[in-house]
Design a protein around this nucleic acid. Structure first.
Lengths: 148, 148
DNA sequence: GCTTATTGTAACAATAGCGGTTACAGTAGG
DNA sequence: CCTACTGTAACCGCTATTGTTACAATAAGC
């Protein structure tokens, strides 16, 4: 099963915030939803998770939404963790209760655990190595090429 | 969302097959289900996928089930792919149709794609680096310690 | 050849998470 | 005080998963 699209939507939303210019129209959840092409409530739910993780500040009413850190020091792993795509350390599902009367059943979980943890960590380290700034720079570069 | 437990069940089943001794009682889907602690049909479904991937040979009726390769040359990535945990190259879900009228919406997918692919590949390479044999050796070692 | 245990598969239920939607109370700018 | 926006609850429909029952097809062993 796929990892929830919440993660890519969150990166999208943060990119909008990072690239926001004061001359632009205010970035409401409705406008963000227009860019992602979804419902504003979906955006607000994700903003709530990003806020809880301390990545953004959201002021109710006409207060606006802001990043709390420079895009260069927000990693994609921060975002991944913020939207709680999976419970920490539990990317792989395991059958809950193998039969302890069988040697394989008794030890399979601990035998697999190290490998699955390493695999999960390898994935997360790739995300840790990319910043929000790198994403927005890439978007800007592609836009420049696309426009020229 | 978690990766389906089919994968860990498949590794469990293959471990049973790899550690099978001719003096043991035959490894039917019912006995395997007893070790995993699930329903025999669940095992047969997974065996069907492993068979389709060429990892096992299953003979109907009282024919028995066998690995087609040495455990040393079956990687956990082979198993992962066999049970089709995710469509190839699509571990991360993306929102389908961001708004192309917005710069971010237009380029976010291609900007993210390289990173997400790398993250997925990093996970898969960890699985590729571990063989079924390593798993069964680990199980046997833990069993020896646990028994002694 | 028969018997019998086993596989292969279809069908169905229950569960869970997700994305989407409506509705509405709370809140702060202006 | 108005107004626009956020925060959140509640609900729907969809999909994937796991577990279960049922049964036809199959081949091993006598």
């Amino acid at each position: 099963m796929q990892i929830s699209s919440r993660f890519s939507v969150a990166v999208h939303v943060l990119s909008l915030l990072a690239m926001y210019q004061p001359t632009d129209a205010p970035l409401t959840s409705e406008r963000m939803a227009g860019s992602v092409n979804t419902n504003p409530v979906v955006i607000r739910r994700i903003l709530g998770q990003l806020k809880k993780a301390g990545l953004v500040e959201v002021r109710p009413a006409a207060g606006g939404t802001f990043l709390t850190r420079q895009p260069a020091i927000i990693s994609l792993l921060d975002v991944y963790r913020a939207v709680e795509v999976v419970e920490a350390g539990r990317l792989f599902g395991m059958s809950e209760k193998p039969n302890p009367a069988c040697t394989v059943g008794r030890y399979i979980q601990s035998a697999l655990d190290v490998t699955l943890q390493r695999a999960q960590t390898a994935l997360e380290q790739e995300l840790a190595g990319v910043s929000l700034q790198q994403v927005t720079v890439d978007i800007a570069a592609k836009a420049a090429v696309g426009a020229g």
